Amino acid sequence: MLVLGFESSCDETGVALVKVPEQGAPQLLAQALHSQISMHQAYGGVVPELASRDHIRRVLPLTREVLSQAQVSLQDVDVIAYTQGPGLAGALLVGAGVAVALAAALEKPTLGIHHLEGHLLSPFLSADAPEFPFVALLVSGGHTQLMRVTEVGHYEILGETIDDAAGEAFDKSAKLLGLPYPGGPHLAKLALSGDALAFTLPRPLLHSGKPDFSFAGLKTAVLTQVKRLGDSPSDQQKADLAAATQAAIVEVLVKKSMLALKQTGLKRLVVAGGVGANSLLREQLNAACAKRGVRVHYPELSLCTDNGAMIAMAAAMRLQRGVATLQPGQAGAGGFEVRPRWPLDMRVA
C-alpha cells in the first residue's frame, strides 16, 4: 500500500510517499519540502494570506517531484493523507483541497491527519525508532505539551503550556534582541558565544510539582533586560542574554519531562517538534535520561520542522494498526473539513 501525504498547516509545503508493507515498519520512499522562511522574513513572521498563496504554487510541483523520486504514478497511490489541523485555516485548506480533489479524480480514499500526531510519530522514521508506550514532549512554535502515548491514537495530556509555547519564547525573545525571523535558531546560534550566567532570568512553574509550562513571564523578563541594556547593547551582552534565555527554557523543558517520566513510571521519552532540534535541549535531555536509565528518541534533524513525511507516516501507522477512518474519494462524496483548532487528546482511535 502506498500513502501520499500533504502538509500545509503553516509556512512549509511538504509532500511525501510512504509504503505500508504487510509486515514490518512503514518505509519513507520519497519526500519534498519547500520552506517559506525567506518570503516571511521581510514581515518578521508568517503572513497567513501569503502562506496560503505560496502553498498553492508549490504543492503540485512538489507532488510531481515526489512521484518522480519514487518512480511511481498517481494511479499507484492507494490512500491520500493530508493535515486536517490544527494550523492556519487558509493554509490547511490548500493541502486538504488538493488531497481531496486528487482522491476524487483517482477514486481513492483520503485520511485527515492531526498535525501534532504527525510530529509525535515522526521519530518512527528514524533509525532508532521508539516503542510504545512512552512519554512525549511535543515542543514547537505553537505547542508545548507532555503526553502519555499508549499506542497510535491513544494520547493523554499530562501537562501543557498555560500561555506561550517554548518556541514562541525563543522567537519572541530573539525578536527583542533584534534577530531575524525565524528567531529560535538565530538565538541558539548567538547563545553559543554567550555566558548563560550573566543574566538571571525566571523559570516559571519550575517547582510547581506539575508538568505544566509557562513562558510568558520569561519573555517579559527578557524585555526588561533589553530595556536596561539601552539602545546600543554590545554584541557580548546580546550573546549573554541569548544564552541565559535558552538556558532558562531548556531547564524548564528538561525538568518537566523528568517529572512526567517519574509520575508515569515510563522509561522512554520521545521528543518531537521544531524546538526538538535545539542542541542544548538534546544535550541536557540525553544527560538527564541517561542518569535515570531512560531511553530518549528524536526525529532526524531534517524532520523536526513541518514536513509531509510525518503526515504520510502517521497515516501509514494508523492504517497498519486498523485505526484509520478513511473517507471515500468519489466526486460529490461530501467535501472536506479542516480543523484550525484541534486538541490532540481528542484524536483517539
Rank of each mutant, 00 (worst) to 15 (best):
I157Y: 13
L176F: 06
K227S: 08
A248V: 10
E151G: 13
L205W: 07
L253S: 09
I162C: 10
K175F: 14
H207Q: 12
F170E: 07
E156Y: 02
H186P: 12
L177C: 04
L206K: 14
A188S: 10
Y181D: 01
L146Q: 05
K172L: 03
V222N: 04
S232C: 14
A191L: 04
K238A: 05
T200P: 15
D231C: 10
E151R: 06
Q237G: 11
K189C: 07
P185F: 04
T144P: 15
A198S: 09
A196E: 06
P185L: 03
V222R: 06
D163P: 11
V152W: 00
I162F: 13
A165Q: 04
K175T: 15
G159C: 07
L179C: 14
A239I: 03
D212T: 10
T144D: 10
H207E: 14
H186Y: 13
G178A: 06
A174Y: 01
L241S: 00
L197M: 15
M147Y: 07
V152C: 00
G142D: 12
H154S: 11
K210L: 15
G167Y: 15
K210P: 00
S193P: 04
H143N: 08
T150G: 14
S232V: 12
A165S: 06
L218T: 15
L218A: 14
G153T: 02
A169Y: 08
E168F: 05
D171K: 06
L176N: 03
E168V: 01
P233E: 05
L201I: 07
D164F: 08
A239F: 02
A166L: 10
K172P: 07
V149S: 03
F170P: 03
T161Y: 09
D195Y: 00
G209L: 09
